[in-house]
């Protein structure tokens, strides 16, 4: 049984809409941390938004979140993974759209902006899951440039941006950039094993 981290909710209550939050997690707790971020945004602050997934298929994420009682109806998913899998785009969910590849970074940005214009929500968020997944496909310099653009674009539009990464697996240059440009940090990156 997954237990959501309530302290993340407390931290989120103190950030503004133009914040960009770096969420660090470990390899074994990434989903729990992600769900702990989404839960207050959706259930407490009643926000809608866009979830860009480069780490796993959107179907899996939706099922995981729904099983924890986190409704996903107000979240638009941009799935950068499933197009690369034969049959991966067969889905019943109508809030998933697909991007051909994790290298099409600009597409992800534009499609996020498109979804936001369509849904016209006053308070929105965008979640980028994750930097590590994108690093598999994209050069470090390009990824750093992209994240810089990403953070600034949504900050300007007063959209809360949440960037998930596993610091042990993030290229140092990218990690340094994230530290520099993000306004807030939620750090669950180290797991203590007793």
């Amino acid at each position: 049984m997954i237990e959501l981290d309530q302290k993340i909710a407390e931290q989120l209550s103190e950030v503004g809409l133009n914040s960009s939050i770096q969420v660090r997690c470990g390899t074994s707790n990434s989903f729990t941390v992600t769900a702990s971020v989404i839960h207050p945004l959706v259930n407490v602050f009643e926000m809608g938004g866009v979830y860009i997934s480069a780490s796993r298929g959107a179907n899996e994420i939706i099922e995981g979140l729904e099983s924890l009682g986190i409704p996903t109806g107000n979240i638009q998913f941009l799935d950068m993974v499933s197009s690369g899998i034969l049959g991966g785009t067969n889905t019943e969910h109508n809030n998933i759209s697909y991007i051909d590849s994790p290298i099409m970074l600009e597409s992800a940005l534009l499609r996020t902006m498109y979804q936001m214009r369509r849904t016209l929500s006053e308070r929105s968020f965008v979640i980028l899951d994750s930097v590590n997944a994108l690093a598999i496909y994209n050069e470090e310099r390009m990824l750093a440039e992209y994240l810089h653009t990403f953070v600034n674009t949504f900050r300007q539009r007063e959209v809360l941006s949440v960037i998930i990464n596993v610091p042990d697996q993030t290229p140092p240059g990218v990690l340094a950039n994230l530290d520099l440009y993000c306004t807030d940090l939620i750090d669950r990156g180290q797991i203590v094993i007793n």
Binding site: R111, Y114, M142, T149
Partner: peptide, 18 residues
């Protein structure tokens, strides 16, 4: 970079290294 969406053409600067 261009995206042709149902609400029209959308543009964003192309990544320099890409």
């Amino acid at each position: 970079a261009v995206e042709l969406t149902s609400i029209g053409v959308m543009l964003t600067p192309m990544l320099k290294w890409g």
